[in-house]
């Protein structure tokens, strides 16, 4: 099956830089909010910047929830959620007190409420990953490699075997989720120089394509 990447456009976030970086792999990349287009992808990227509740609204408005659930759970296509995109894969977020897609049974909390007042929220800047479960997506990433984070809400209480990596900032939160073809990353690989580009390459090249 020929690979094809579709970046899901639901009106939240910057898709340009992401498209540019994944385009360097000589694999067709499109940005789309159409279910018919999403169905043609082997690899989907669910990006996102902004408010969780509004993002779920946008997905509903674009009638994308059903097709995303079908691709993720029935078709088992490779899907990468980035930042808010990862949070949308969880069951629930305190941002808007809103249900998510629920692919990962865990929740997204307001970091402000769980950290000391001296810890400035949003978590903004470069931080490292502690890898918890081996997955091809983080091959070559070492404990000192820094990734770019910008988020005020974070994922906690994930099932141990689904935690790809964690990061510490006031509390230890889940900075990566994985279950076979489904991956979520709290940081922005597309903004994290060479380390991040390596992660995107791994997603495109190594993650299993399910026919």
């Amino acid at each position: 099956m020929n690979r094809k990447i579709v970046i899901v456009d639901y009106g939240m976030g910057n898709l340009h830089s992401l498209k540019r970086i994944v385009s360097s792999h000589n694999i067709p990349v499109t940005i789309s909010n159409k279910a018919s287009e999403l169905l043609t992808a082997t690899h989907l990227i669910l990006p996102g910047v902004g408010h969780f509740g509004q993002a779920m609204e946008q997905l509903k408005r674009n009638e994308l929830i059903e097709v995303l659930n079908y691709l993720a759970l029935e078709e088992k296509r490779s899907i990468l959620g980035i930042c808010l995109g990862m949070q949308l894969m969880t069951s629930f977020s305190e941002e808007g007190d809103c249900e998510g897609l629920g692919w990962f049974k865990c929740k997204t909390i307001n970091l402000q409420a769980y950290t000391e007042p001296s810890i400035k929220i949003p978590h903004l800047g470069w931080n490292t990953l502690t890898v918890k479960n081996d997955h091809k997506i983080l091959a070559d990433i070492s404990a000192s490699d820094e990734m770019y984070f910008v988020h005020g809400f974070g994922v906690v209480e994930a099932m141990e075997e689904e935690v790809l990596c964690t990061t510490s900032y006031g509390i230890e939160f889940v900075s990566g989720l994985c279950r076979n073809h489904l991956i979520g990353l709290q940081f922005h690989p597309e903004k994290s120089h060479g380390n991040g580009q390596g992660i995107l390459s791994n997603f495109i090249n190594s993650c299993i394509v399910h026919e």
């Binding site: 910047v49 902004g50 408010h51 509004q54 808010l84 949003p122 910008v150 988020h151």
Partner: peptide, 8 residues
Amino acid sequence: SQRFGRST
């Protein structure tokens, strides 16, 4: 901020 989120 309400439209784009605090982080933006």
